[in-house]
Write a protein that binds this DNA or RNA. Structure first.
Length: 141
DNA sequence: CCCTGATTCGC
DNA sequence: GCGAATCAGG
């Protein structure tokens, strides 16, 4: 591509009109790379780029930015969340989550009896939930 | 897979 | 200086 003054004017005009690099390339019969390359060299206003170069961004920050004061700053302990919001106060007091009724109906609820220790179900439902493999044959799929 | 723009680098 | 190749996001 011979960048005559006319060609450069045309590029500037299209660029100023906000055409995409590919569109300018189409109109001028050149590649969009030629357009973007020339635009870059002419220091035309950069378009919002869709990309963000991780490689550069990741390499650069090695440059230490000295903004902190020379004085040493007391180590700041991150504030500990004082209370984690838990749906249940204590694992040991968990209530049975065996479903009762038809899901989606107003009657649907969970058993809510006190769960057997370490299990999500109360004693009664745990006995239903946990079946010895040997006794399960007739229920199997 | 289409689009976008930016950067790189051999020419 | 040029622009294809490549990258990276939509």
């Amino acid at each position: 591509m011979e960048w005559t003054a006319e060609a450069i004017d045309q590029l500037r005009a299209y660029w100023a009109e906000g055409h995409s690099t590919a569109e300018i390339g189409r109109r001028m019969g050149i590649s969009k790379n030629a357009v973007v390359g020339k635009a870059h060299r002419l220091n035309l206003d950069a378009r919002p780029s869709p990309i963000r170069r991780e490689a550069e961004a990741a390499e650069r920050p090695a440059a230490p930015r000295r903004i902190a004061s020379p004085r040493e700053v007391a180590p700041r302990r991150p504030e500990q969340p004082s209370a984690v919001v838990r749906p249940f106060p204590r694992a040991s007091l968990r209530s049975c989550c065996w479903p009762l009724g038809e899901p989606g109906t107003p009657e649907f609820r969970f058993c809510s009896a006190e769960a057997a220790s370490g299990k999500p179900y109360c004693q009664e439902h745990a006995s239903v939930a946990y079946v010895k493999a040997r006794d399960r044959r007739e229920d199997a799929a």
